[in-house]
Structures are given as C-alpha cells and as structure tokens.
Amino acid sequence: MSELIPTQTGAPAAESELMVRAEQVHKSFGHIEVLKGIDLEVRSGEVCCLLGPSGSGKSTFLRCINHLEKINAGRIWVDGDLIGYRERGGKLHELREKEVAAQRRAIGMVFQRFNLFPHMTALENVIEAPVRVKREPKAAVRERAEALLARVGLADKMGNYPGQLSGGQQQRVAIARALAMQPKLMLFDEPTSALDPELVGEVLDVMKDLARDGMTMIVVTHEIGFAREVGDTLVFMDGGVVVERGNPREVIANPRHERTKTFLAKVL
C-alpha cells in the first residue's frame, strides 16, 4: 500500500528507508494544545527544513522526536524504533529511563543556545558522552574527538573553555559533541539564531558539509538561503499544524498557502 502513496518529493519511499516517521503527533502543555496532529516523514540522508513563525511548535516537535517531551497522542518512529514506548499486545508501555536514554544516543541535538558544559574544555565536552554513556575506550574517543573538532575548524581551540569561545565557535563545538556519539539523525533547533550575523556563515558551512556527507537532518531555521540550497524538503508549520510542504525551491518561489506567503515575505 505504502508504495502507492507518493511522498512529498515525489519519490516513493519504502518503509525501510524512513529515518523518521511521525503520525498524528499531539502535544499539550496544560490546557493549551501546542501540536495538533503533525505528520512527518524524513528519509535516510534527507535534510528536512522546518520553518514557521515563533510559537508555532517547531521546538516542541523537535523535542518530541528525542522524547525530551512526552507526546499526548500519535506515534514517532526513528529508524523503525517507536520512541518512548513499547507496543505489546495492543497496549503501550512506557520505556524505562535507561531505554529512553539508549534511544537518545542515536539522535544528536543542537540547541539555539549551544548548551555546552561550561566547566569542561571543548575537547572534554566532545569526549564526555561517548566515554561515560557508551563506555568507549578513552584513547579512541579522544582521537575521534580531535578529528571532529578539526573538521569543524577548531583544531587550535580544543583546550579552551566555552566561555573563551565566540558564539559561532561554541556552536561548532556543540555540533562536534553531538557527532561524537555517531548519531543516525541530527536535530538542529535554530542553530544560528543566537549568533551575531557575521558568525552565522561558519556554522552553516559545517552543517552543509554534514549534509553532503549524507547525514539525516531536521533543521529548524529562519535561514531561507540554507533551506533553498541544502534542504531536500521544506515543511512550513503554523499554529501547531503543518500548513505546507514540498521542495524548498518551489515552496519558497511559489508558496501556495496564504500563511506561508505572509511568513516568507517577513523573513526574505
């Protein structure tokens, strides 16, 4: 059946190629429903750009994907694994803290405000999780971390504390920290919104490089240029629903929906 349903980019996607599948995701805070039934499919190796006005629920949706928020209804699968629950005998069972943590290891996340550990150097930030969480040997992790930091252009800043780095440098360390866990999927929540304009480029370059390498990425961003150049799909959200989706170049050139038009007019 699924082969008959074309995905947004036109190519039929087999179940196995899907990295992320979200079905009818609902999320409320108290009485306020923030996500009102989000459907999303992201294929392996795809770069999906999530756009939308502030407060439309983009961050909340991203946080649901790695179970930082518990959803109220719907299902999310990452690489075939149901996130946060186990389905047994037609009933959902909550996963234990350990099992949730194990699912999160495969999902990297980059935050708007970097959230580097301020009491650790750049290198220690990158080494921490593989050594403590995955229990990998320190020497091997160290080598990988140094290579990652070199790759994001920070070979000479490994011993610096986050407080001694610029915003752009901190965000590149944060990307390296997430990559050190060798994730299958990377989530970016407005990674350049807290940066001075002249520092945005260096972070976007690292992300482009990552996309070229075939990383599956969901990127919440207001950088239209990035979405047009690197994005495989563009999803426009407003008021907790997906308003429009498609090829980024087409959507940006010819938005069909009125709300998309208004939003693009503001950010372009």
Partner: peptide, 12 residues
C-alpha cells in the same frame, strides 16, 4: 538547558 543537553546525549 544543561540538563536537556545531557539528556539529549543519552546520559542517565
């Protein structure tokens, strides 16, 4: 944000 970053990395 520190707790979130640690959780996102899979820390207990």
């Amino acid at each position: 944000g520190q707790t979130e970053a640690a959780q996102a990395l899979g820390m207990s």
